[in-house]
Design a binder for these strands. Structure first.
Lengths: 216, 216
DNA sequence: TAGATTGTTAATCGATTAACAATC
DNA sequence: TAGATTGTTAATCGATTAACAATC
């Protein structure tokens, strides 16, 4: 299906945004769009859009443009959204709960199948029909259910040990909300970091920069 | 203080990570580090680190390397973390609450000064000593307290109208957790997006890619 | 057919890496 | 002084943009 291996991460990172915009256009009742019009709506160049898409195949038609519905579906396939993978949540604090309750993972390729915490007060609870298991049941659960990824919403101090354990248990990826950085430790495991602090600091920089007098 | 205007966003995005690693090294009781050793720990090249830092000044010493504590502080200054700016939270659902309760903004340059929602059931509550105000008090509050940024944790459908209102009220930046994309609409307002869906889709792609048979 | 717009090659631009003189 | 490591210039690499023939 895919044309060749190793598409650059810059391209990959743009795919979800294309997917989102195409979804919005679809909801607007539109059916076709040219790379030029899409580029204007997204703040990119038409060239870039065409280059990006041509990493994966030929989805357009000369003189016509792209069929919105079809292109969206193709990008969905490229991202692998159709094949729903199994996720477990480690840490049912505020952030973990927010994700479990509020966030529809199935539209993003995942289904939550288990929740774990070690805090006694949380253990009885049920979140989205899933009981919160004690951490000491993690091994057994993973062996039985073979989750693909783990969502880490635990304190930084616990991240390392838990990650080690999960890698041992064959986890394939982490959605990492902790402040711990294990990009390098497990070369065969995919890590997607959501470093909220980094994001907020970037905003801080840009705000500070903006309000500074511009020196020539 | 800063050497020249318009440092590339690639560099800016790496600053918080440097800041984090230097903080960890400091906690480890270390005092100096060379660009080479830091590069190995962070998975970068020494050249890149030196290039990045030299966008802002000369923080090292030949033959010695960098003073960890000092470099960390300098990066903090560059990011503008010392000057605490005012933030308001719009939307006190699961995600909004998680941020307000759990996330220490002051270490990232911001202080939460107001929380807003329109859901009747939430309005009585107090989160981190801040009462949840009704949305119809937003105008008054902003005129009185002049917040710098707004954290948007509201449904996509409401994002556009609220953003418009806040821009009118002089907000300087958004920390955007909604699925709405207003990168282009307000050229003078700084937007930092936390598109969790995009992040999860990227993870989905990388997991799918990894498990596919590698074709040559 | 003529016009529009793609897919793709070539040109440009920017970011990363390498090299090295300066210097602690 | 000799060794280490910076700051910075030059070389390389990759990503973005421009151009255009192919074609719907």
């Amino acid at each position: 299906m895919s044309k060749s291996r190793s598409v650059s991460t810059s391209v990959i990172k743009r795919l979800p945004r294309y997917y989102r915009f195409l979804g919005d256009l679809k909801l607007n009742g539109m059916h076709r769009i040219s790379s030029k019009e899409l580029s204007e709506r997204m703040g990119l160049t038409a060239s870039q859009i065409r280059q990006d898409l041509n990493c994966f195949g030929e989805f357009g038609q000369q003189g016509y443009g792209y069929n919105i519905d079809l292109l969206r579906e193709e990008i969905g396939k490229i991202l692998g959204l159709c094949d729903i993978k199994k996720a477990i949540l480690i840490g049912a604090g505020y952030m973990g709960k927010a994700l479990a309750m509020h966030f529809d993972m199935t539209t993003n390729g995942f289904r939550l199948i288990g929740i774990f915490d070690k805090k006694q007060s949380i253990l009885g609870q049920t979140i989205q029909n899933l009981p919160v298991h004690n951490m000491d049941r993690l091994d057994e659960f993973c062996r039985e259910n073979k989750p693909d990824i783990a969502i880490l919403c635990i304190p930084k101090t616990e991240a390392h040990a838990v990650a080690d354990q999960l890698v041992q248990l064959g986890i394939k990826g982490f959605w990492n909300f902790t402040h711990y950085d294990f990009s390098l430790e497990y070369p065969d495991v995919v890590v997607e970091n959501v470093h909220l602090s980094d994001s907020l600091m970037t905003l801080c920089y840009n705000i500070s920069e903006k309000s500074e007098p511009v020196e020539e």
